[in-house]
Design a binder for these strands. Structure first.
Lengths: 179, 179
DNA sequence: GGTGCCATGTAACGAGTTACATGATTGG
DNA sequence: CCAATCATGTAACTCGTTACATGGCACC
């Protein structure tokens, strides 16, 4: 039940609608845990029943009504309990790496193209992360847990992109020497 | 239908039983695409029906009988078609990174312990990868596609472990300064 | 008049996990 | 005698994805 906990983490930022949570899952926390609005709405009603969140209906003139969710004490306890459990390492799962295992049967030019595309993706990500770094984390107070935690995760994202870019360069060089 | 294709990739190595495929999914290819024997057996019967593989029953005295699967031409075509399609980047998904977003509400000591555990895991992986490197890839012929492809994926694994270790060190330093 | 944002969900399907189930042989 | 290896699968369940569904407001 990991998505539920990711939502709880989201709600530590304050009251939010399903729509808001979904937006957070597209940026920020979504860089490390993704979902879609369908599942988020489903999960919100589930954890509402469990009592981990409470819900307040907000009527908005000239906009659709929304439901603002906020953490309950049970939700906070649940979050803390979850955080105590060891976090399992997510196994790598990547098409591109698998394809390399049957490289001898595949079209090298197409594969090289895919590696280039992957490289570009991560270059774009790195640029985005660096923008976020400059925008929000150029002057971090090292004693502010709230900021420091998020900054650490951003740095992870940056390292992730960098290692992809470096590996793609290596792979392209190798593929070039093959054909 | 990604698992099916990962199995096809496996079978480019030659005839294998479900048991063999499962073992490959625990080492080598399994470092980049994991599964379990249940799903592998299910998927094998599925792609047998589709005609991507064919099956030969081998009776073994003093061992359980086994079914040896091998690629058919349709399977090879399928593999090649699949490899032409762009490979989607697997989104990051990690508990530990998510927890950092609610760092201000969590127990720092426990989290630091989890980071240390994560570090050890990746140190162990890196050692394993290096052993494999020395054992199988100390003298790679850069024109041998079969070897070069697998070696590239191994190098990806090594970079992955290295970036984790480096990040964990950074995180531990940061967490230390907090508490 | 079209695109995009706000805001909510359901239904069907496919993928993946956990638990259950069997049974012989080999090595310590 | 116990554990590991070889070898196969089924059943129930949860998680995740895709497609479907609605509808007003604001901006260009």
């Amino acid at each position: 039940m990991a998505l539920a906990h990711a939502i709880l983490v989201c709600l530590t930022e304050g009251k939010q609608s399903g729509y808001d949570v979904n937006k957070a899952f597209q940026g920020s926390i979504g860089f490390f845990w993704h979902s879609d609005h369908q599942r988020i709405y489903r999960e919100l009603s589930k954890i509402l029943k469990l009592g981990w969140v409470e819900c307040e209906l907000v009527e908005q003139p000239s906009k659709p009504n929304k439901k603002l969710y906020s953490l309950t004490q049970a939700g906070i306890d649940q979050l803390k309990e979850w955080a105590k459990k060891p976090s399992p390492t997510a196994p790598l799962k990547d098409d591109l790496l698998v394809r390399l295992f049957s490289l001898h049967m595949l079209d090298l030019a197409i594969l090289a193209e895919q590696v280039r595309a992957r490289r570009e993706e991560h270059v774009a990500k790195l640029i985005l992360y660096r923008k976020i770094q400059v925008r929000y984390y150029s002057d971090v107070d090292p004693t502010d847990a709230r900021t420091v935690g998020k900054y650490l995760s951003l740095k992870f994202g940056m390292r992730d992109a960098e290692r992809w870019i470096a590996w793609c360069d290596e792979a392209l060089f190798t593929l070039d020497n093959l054909g």
